[in-house]
């Protein structure tokens, strides 16, 4: 039996073609950029957990665009100051199905939905520029220097 016959997986399955960046990749990228800009005084950490299903009020949308509704991923985006003994502040969290999109973002008692990568980028921009985010980061920097 040849290798081709044994391998039943389609050959183009593992070639990424015009794929959106995953929410995790986007968040990790932004986490790294924060550390670089604050000289590591404030870093960001992304932690992933798996939930049994998507948030209830999010399942219909996911089904509509053909995404799974079970076993959703939750990405927690936290600000961390090692200079303050690893003080950690959870800024927001993102829930999404295994396919990556749509995502639901939970920030400051509000919920935001993004169906595409560009929409998620828009939500992240809004969160990073938010007054609350600014205040927390500036306070962490100030405290770490005193």
């Amino acid at each position: 039996m040849t290798t081709t016959e044994r391998n039943l997986w389609p050959q183009d399955l593992f070639t990424a073609v015009d794929v959106q960046r995953t929410p995790l990749a986007l968040l990790r990228e932004q986490a790294t950029l924060l550390g670089e800009q604050t000289k590591n005084l404030v870093e960001a950490k992304v932690t992933t957990s798996v939930e049994p299903s998507l948030p209830r009020n999010f399942q219909t949308l996911a089904t509509l665009i053909g995404s799974s509704t079970n076993n959703s991923f939750v990405q927690k985006f936290s600000l961390v100051s090692t200079a303050l003994g690893n003080y950690t502040y959870e800024l927001f969290r993102v829930a999404h199905p295994v396919e990556g999109y749509p995502v639901k973002v939970f920030f400051q008692d509000e919920e935001y939905v993004a169906i595409l990568e560009d929409e998620l980028i828009g939500v992240l921009k809004m969160i990073f520029a938010h007054e609350k985010t600014r205040r927390v980061i500036q306070a962490m920097i100030a405290q770490s220097q005193s």
Partner: peptide, 21 residues
């Protein structure tokens, strides 16, 4: 202070330093 040290160390450092509290 760790914050001052990090800021000073990381003015030019690549890759940057992290504090290990």
């Amino acid at each position: 202070a760790p914050g001052v040290m990090l800021e000073t160390l990381n003015r030019e450092a690549v890759p940057m330093f992290h504090h290990h509290p």
